[in-house]
Amino acid sequence: MVNNKKSSKPVIEIKEMHKWFGSFHVLKNISLKVNQGERIVICGPSGSGKSTLIRCINRLEVHQKGDIIVNDTELTGDLKNLEAIRSDVGMVFQSFNLFPHLSVLENCTLAPIWVKGLPKKEATELAMELLTRVKIPEQALKFPGQLSGGQQQRVAIARSLCMQPKIMLFDEPTSALDPEMIKEVLDTMIELAETGMTMLVVTHEMGFAKKVADSVIFMDEGEIIEQNDPNNFFNNPKNDRTKLFLSQILNH
């Protein structure tokens, strides 16, 4: 999968970033550059800090040392900057986190209306367009509790896209799904990748990584162990820990 159209301007730049939970050092000296339109898959054993890493990018987790620069804005405690960055960075969660008291459509229009100040009519049109793109426009007036897991996750993707973000973060988007629903969500993500969206995806779906990723990152114990293009990453891993991890998840 070679894509030459990617610009070389980094939209996310992480420089020597560290994070602790109390006295536990969860992220150690992370440096990472993500260019416009780049798709990065992050994998690694549980507890390796991969979710924490992408949650630092929209400051759901606060890092203690180093810099994170998103869209030329450095992440600090400044609320104005933070809200601006968050409306540019969409996130999809493992447990969907749809708002259960709002209809699917209201889930999608809430933030565009109140954060971006979009008129209700436009927000609704945009939401319907994106719900059509994730192939569930007919569910717009239902509540999240009435949908299947796969449908809920597709709504969550549409909800994030309604903010017209420049970057999408996916935190194990298929881990809470029944096997027969994983494909519909992955298909949606593949389609999204084809539109040129910058994506950071934490997942164990190696098929997805091979198909879509420009670059695969392996993390263990809070460190980036190895980063490579998918071809080299899967066929020619350099680090022993990467080899062990790949053998564990690919041979069963």
């Binding site: 759901l60 601006a84 968050r86 969907f96 986190n97 708002f99 809430l110 933030a111 109140w114």
Partner: peptide, 11 residues
């Protein structure tokens, strides 16, 4: 997760 989703949307 509800707060995280709301935060992530920029509310």
């Amino acid at each position: 997760g509800q707060y995280e989703a709301a935060d992530a949307l920029g509310l």
